[in-house]
Design a protein around this nucleic acid. Structure first.
Lengths: 271, 271
DNA sequence: GGCCGCGTTGCATGAGGTGAAACCCGCGAA
DNA sequence: TTCGCGGGTTTCACCTCATGCAACGCGGCC
């Protein structure tokens, strides 16, 4: 293998350098690649397009960063769940063309929801900037968090609530939360209203950012694995109008993503 | 990602096709790639050289087949043990330049040792053709099998012996086997002599192929994970001379491979 | 011995990879 | 508001370098 008289293929060689670079750093911008590999950006762009077409890397909407596609590697390692962002990304892009407001994809963590992807850069409006990837959202005060809590298994819900319950929780406040979640579950989508008394991360910020938000869970295999929301400025007309207009699209998108994740976990190996 | 005005890099594109093809079929010959991808062999050769240099594929000595390098994929999935063949291959190539006879790398299976790699194609002698990859060797009648049995943990040894014990085993024959293994362990290397009465796969073949063979275990983390042997024609001078001359090289090679495997499993991620 | 299949090498040709330069676009500063 | 800047994107003319034909080596098999 090592010794061979023939020359190597330079274009392939450099392309593989890019691939390896993307794989080692988990997320990388064009500019970072540029200064790491000393290749002109134009060249990098063409290589990334090629790698993308072959399904080896993908570009996150949230920040345009290039990420490795784990699929080929973990072939058969189950859990396409780790790829939700990658799988959801194209659906969120499509969603951005159907509705006028940006969305965020969130996944549950121990005591918060984490943003994995957002299509907000696709909107021109400066009011549309949603937190970058990695931002932590409250389970209690955000539509995203409530959508997950309402959809998840009871034992999981209990565990999360227990984790968030303040020492000095007002009597009855926990029942209020449960009532909110029950209503959310019945309604089929979550809102950041009504207000709930417990403190939790960035509660104040949520309260006064002047936005409204609705969210639904993404289900796969009977369990919620993520959520997707829609955020719009509060001043924008009546909330009911917005919600009526876009709820269906949001739910359809969530279902489509859930189906795609289930498909990947099951038989197909994608592309 | 999908839509982009710029052109893709054809050379990279085709190279990735080759990579993917090698990854999906686990082992593939140049000719197979040729008819699968409809690329001239010369081109394929250059691409494979490039992929090899980047550590994404490697070529098996045994049959020249190209195999994917699992490393990048399973990064952190531990057990470099599955890569023994890949890791051992270069050492076996080096060994072929130090000694005059071919070697085989074997790993334990339920009731036999399986050949994973051999450097025999590097020898011109037609007497040197050793079974292709996948051949099953007897634990009892081959040096390779005995080397493993002698080196492994007692409980594992007992399990294997129990599995192989014939219903009508002659009294004392099992003790004979244990004695053989004990002597092997003390000596530090295994031989296919002395004969043992139990029947086992291809016993007859081993008895009359007119060859002699010696083998040592490859240790990693205190346990044997594979074996490497040396085979030569029986007619070739005195066996003692051959063994004296090459035993050290064989043991050094086994140790080097064991160390390489341990290194990969531990810290480094190889390329 | 001669044929065939497969891997390998050499080399002339022009397809296509390359990167400088220009363009775009959003952002922050003035 | 304009300007400048830093990133990403596109264009395009140059000329390397990927390409595949052709020829060779070698071992196996009839």
């Amino acid at each position: 293998m090592l010794e061979r008289k023939v020359k190597t293929v330079r274009a392939l060689e450099r392309g593989l350098d890019v691939l390896v670079e993307v794989q080692t750093r988990r997320a990388v911008s064009l500019h970072e690649l540029h200064q790491a590999l000393h290749l002109p950006k134009a060249t990098l762009l063409r290589m990334l397009l090629t790698l993308g077409r072959k399904g080896l890397v993908w570009q996150r909407l949230a920040d345009g960063a290039y990420l490795p596609h784990l699929g080929a590697a973990a072939r058969g390692t189950g859990s396409a769940v780790e790829h939700i962002a990658e799988i959801a990304s194209p659906y969120m892009k499509a969603l951005s063309t159907r509705v006028a407001w940006p969305s965020v994809l969130g996944v549950p963590r121990l005591d918060h929801m984490e943003i994995l992807e957002t299509n907000s850069p696709l909107f021109r409006l400066d009011s549309a900037i949603l937190g970058p990837v990695g931002v932590k959202l409250s389970y209690i005060h955000t539509a995203t968090g409530r959508a997950y809590l309402a959809a998840c298994d009871e034992s999981e819900r209990e565990a999360i609530i227990a984790r968030l319950r303040p020492k000095d929780a007002a009597p009855g406040s926990e029942d209020d939360l449960r009532a909110i979640l029950a209503e959310t579950r019945g309604r089929g989508y979550a809102l950041r209203e009504p207000l709930h008394p417990w403190p939790d991360r960035s509660k104040q910020l949520v309260l006064r950012d002047g936005r409204r938000s609705m969210a639904v869970a993404i289900m796969a295999g009977g369990a919620p694995i993520a959520t997707i929301n829609l955020t719009w400025p509060a001043k924008r007309g009546t909330d009911e109008a917005v919600m009526q207009r876009h709820l269906e699209a949001l739910q359809q998108t969530a279902q489509a993503i859930g189906r795609a994740v289930a498909d990947q976990s099951g038989g197909g190996q994608g592309r």
